[in-house]
Amino acid sequence: MPETHPARRPPGELEASVLAALWAAGGPLTPADVQRDLGRALARTTVTTILARLHDKGAVARTRSGRGYAYTPTQDSPGLAARRMRTELDKEEDRETVLARFVSQLSPDDEQLLRALLDDAEAGTDADAGTDAEPGTAAEAGTGEGGGPR
């Protein structure tokens, strides 16, 4: 009889679960804390590996906690999504085509929102006050000089 294996998780699902636990905590968590918060569904070594990978990607910061580390997210969920978008854009040589195709696929509401954000950035106002947005990035996006969300 053939072995049955559970279906593989979609890419990024474990990282998303670990980040959700960190965001909900509001403070540093050790791998054991994250494992507990996730209902012990994952081995501690798996959680530790995921946290180390997130640290390598810059998504979490770590501080010494006993013999190991405690982790905190470096950005909120929207900030992390913006960072992933920027990383993908940075992989492409033809940024103009990538951005043009991205904009052409926006819904009318999202297109209007993007226009308003670019207008605000051009006017020097911070439409995203109080978040992890980096100053000046939206204005750079409108100039075609390699800007965009970081």
Rank of each mutant, 00 (worst) to 15 (best):
S77Y: 07
R83M: 10
E92D: 04
P78L: 10
H55C: 06
P108N: 08
T48M: 01
A70I: 05
A70S: 12
G79E: 01
Q112Y: 03
E88F: 13
E92V: 15
L113C: 05
P73V: 14
M85L: 15
S104I: 02
R67V: 09
L113F: 09
P78I: 07
E88W: 09
T46L: 07
T45D: 11
L118R: 12
R67K: 09
K91C: 11
F102T: 13
P108T: 10
H55M: 00
H55Y: 11
T87Q: 14
G66R: 07
G79C: 02
R95L: 06
V60P: 09
P78Y: 07
R44P: 02
A81K: 07
K91N: 07
R86T: 06
Q75K: 13
L113N: 05
A43Q: 10
V47R: 04
I50P: 00
Q75H: 13
D110F: 08
A59I: 10
A41H: 11
S104P: 01
V47A: 04
R115P: 00
A81Q: 07
L80E: 03
D109N: 09
D94N: 15
T72S: 14
L51C: 14
K91I: 01
D109K: 12
K91Q: 13
V103M: 04
Y71T: 04
Y69D: 10
A61P: 00
T49E: 11
G58M: 05
A116P: 00
A70W: 04
T49R: 15
P73T: 13
R95A: 11
E111H: 14
L89A: 14
V98F: 11
L51F: 02
R62S: 14
R115F: 06
D94V: 05
E88Y: 11
T87K: 06
Q75V: 05
T97Y: 03
A70H: 05
K57E: 14
Y71D: 03
A82I: 01
S77N: 00
S77W: 05
Y69P: 00
L114D: 01
Q105C: 14
R95I: 01
E92C: 11
D109H: 12
R95W: 04
A43I: 00
L106A: 04
I50Q: 13
D76S: 13
H55D: 13
E88S: 12
Q105S: 15
V103E: 11
L99D: 00
S65W: 08
A59C: 09
A59H: 14
E111K: 13
S65L: 05
E96P: 01
A52N: 10
S65N: 13
D109G: 09
T48I: 00
Y71G: 02
E96S: 14
G58H: 04
P73S: 09
R86N: 12
L54Y: 05
V47D: 03
E111A: 15
A81R: 11
V103D: 06
R64F: 01
R95T: 12
M85P: 00
T74K: 04
I50S: 14
L106I: 04
A82L: 09
